[in-house]
């Protein structure tokens, strides 16, 4: 599903709540299993949230990947050169960082992916590449919840569209 809505409507907070990163009320279940019955880190591996501006905690880009060879297999599909892994993170462009962060998250093989403006900083070509990687994962059974300002993106990914405003999530019928 794809969620649109005005800035400050709480789209990111909604994703963060589903990933159990922010305190909130209510229950969340995946395949009938209650989130509260699982340790939070295990839930977050399965229901992975990727922030609009992902954080980095090592100087070198490659250090964020436990297995470099796995990262390298996914990089060409997103037009990234494996040499980028040897660069310090601050030398990478915003778009390169976003795509690397997406790879970092996909390598965990999440069942649900919560993406916050994944293509906001990308040029049209990179956006197409990201969308085709996501479409491939969707075919393999990934559940995607996407916050986006790009209304066409939902259609390209064949997603249900929802609108979040004033604390209400309403379906958009097209």
């Amino acid at each position: 599903m794809a969620i649109t809505g005005p800035s400050g409507a709480g789209k990111s907070v909604l994703l963060r709540m589903v990933a159990d990163l922010d305190p909130h009320q209510g229950a969340v279940r995946l395949n009938g299993i209650d989130r509260a019955s699982q340790p939070a880190p295990i839930w977050r591996r399965r229901v992975a949230y990727l922030a609009a501006e992902p954080g980095w905690w090592h100087e070198q880009a490659g250090a964020h990947f436990p297995r470099r060879d796995e990262a390298e297999t996914l990089m060409p599909a997103l037009a990234l050169s494996p040499a980028l892994l040897d660069q310090p993170v601050h030398r990478l462009s915003t778009g390169e960082r976003m795509r690397l962060a997406l790879i970092r998250t996909l390598l965990n093989q999440p069942a649900v992916l919560l993406l916050d403006e994944p293509t906001g900083a990308l040029d049209p070509h990179s956006t197409t590449l990201v969308e085709s990687v996501l479409a491939e994962r969707l075919r393999q059974g990934l559940i995607l919840i996407l916050v986006t300002h790009d209304t066409d993106q939902a259609g390209r990914l064949g997603a249900e569209r929802w609108h979040l405003e004033s604390g209400r999530l309403t379906p958009i019928t097209t």
Binding site: A48, A51, P54, N108
Partner: peptide, 15 residues
């Protein structure tokens, strides 16, 4: 200052 870095790791299932 390190909030984004810490939360990025939490979101990946790091303790």
């Amino acid at each position: 200052r390190e909030r984004a870095a810490i939360e990025a790791q939490l979101a990946l299932g790091v303790r």
